[in-house]
Design a protein around this nucleic acid. Structure first.
Lengths: 213, 213
DNA sequence: ATAAATTAATTTGTATACATTTTACTGGTT
DNA sequence: AACCAGTAAAATGTATACAAATTAATTTAT
């Protein structure tokens, strides 16, 4: 999908952060990265700034940036926000949802069921696409954008630990339940299941992160 | 406060957007901006990217950016999110709040009362400082960061129209009510007032924006 | 005359070179 | 031995120059 060289660099660095191939907790040197990926420092700087604004990097010292340690409180915050914002947009989406969109969502779930051996990123991407196609009909670009950004940030946590977390089975069950409630246009029920779905995933992740120490 | 040249550029461009000194709805040319502010295109590019990620600019065509038209739906989304997120962080903050912090908040309200002829930015900045000093004790950097970003984006709307909106009086009343509920450690009451406070401000703004057409 | 295609222009993206700032180190003093 | 100052090294920020891409204008064909 990404064709421009800088877009590629962005994906590469993000993946390398997600899979722990870059040093955590110490300043990332632009020179080092530009050599590693064979580009000049200019696109590196662009990407670092972008990743910082997206929460993948945090300030380090007066000017630098670094990869933040995984942190249970941050994960808790991310899921807390999702818990409250996603039911909001779902409520606005349901009146606009048609059969075609429900079908599209169902197809994504089928894909998740069938391809059991998806890579971390592919799995996360499909999961997001499912949620996204439920939310897009709401026609709320700003709300949608914030939610998308929260999902992105969750990706940093999910990605690396998904092997150990493996809550995908119960997660899929809940996905189907949400879809059922939506097709019945039962807004408050759909909201409740969605909220519980996010809370469950968040709790598992937060507990896991707390057990690391 | 901003000392580095690029930080200055960032503030300048943002202010010029807020006060309508730059063309809305058409591509912002890097060359034009670099001449206007007497810097090279490199820092201009940095600032444009940053402002885009913060919602002050949106994509325009395949590569450019532009200043988005003020939009009632966006304003509604921003206030909707604040309505749900700020009570969350307030609940986590109240147990940690001490007298000193309450005093600091009260001082800010006094400043808002006394200096009736504050500039748009100063007023908005004080308003944010009041909210921020209530939320910081929660020790929730991620949640806090998202809320701060939402306030920033609201600034684009408030700033330009605050003369005509002038809801500052009722807004100040609510500020004091919130502070009272907090000092009594009545979490749910404080949350309810805060939520109503945000809803009121949002409704006034959204109605105003809708009347523009 | 309108629409498609090719070419010219404008505009953005990237590399290299240089200036400024920050960080690390060395040497001297208490 | 610890701490501060001053200097050297490293890293980031910025300017200029050039390449790639997009947008516009012009030409050509139907």
């Amino acid at each position: 999908m990404p064709k421009q060289p800088a877009q590629l660099l962005y994906s590469q660095i993000k993946t390398d952060i997600q899979e722990n191939r870059l040093p955590v907790g110490q300043a990332l040197k632009q020179e080092m990265l530009s050599q590693r990926y064979n580009v000049s420092r200019i696109p590196v700087r662009d990407v670092l700034h972008r990743l910082k604004s997206e929460g993948w990097l945090i300030p380090c010292g007066k000017r630098g940036v670094m990869i933040p340690q995984l942190n249970a409180t941050e994960a808790e915050d991310l899921y807390l926000m999702r818990m409250y914002l996603e039911p909001l947009i779902l409520a606005q989406s349901i009146p606009n949802l048609n059969q075609q969109m429900l079908g599209k969502a169902a197809d994504i779930l089928t894909k998740l069921d069938n391809n059991k051996d998806l890579s971390i990123e592919e799995n996360g991407e499909l999961n997001w696409q499912f949620h996204a196609c439920l939310y897009e009909p709401a026609n709320r670009p700003t709300l949608f954008g914030t939610i998308a950004s929260l999902h992105q940030q969750c990706g940093r946590y999910i990605g690396y630990h998904s092997q150990k977390l493996q809550y995908s089975n119960t997660s899929q069950d809940e996905h189907y339940q949400i879809l059922n409630a939506i097709s019945e246009k039962n807004i408050s029920h759909a909201q409740a299941i969605l909220k519980a779905h996010i809370r469950d995933a968040g709790e598992i992740l937060v507990n896991y992160l707390n057990d690391l120490e």
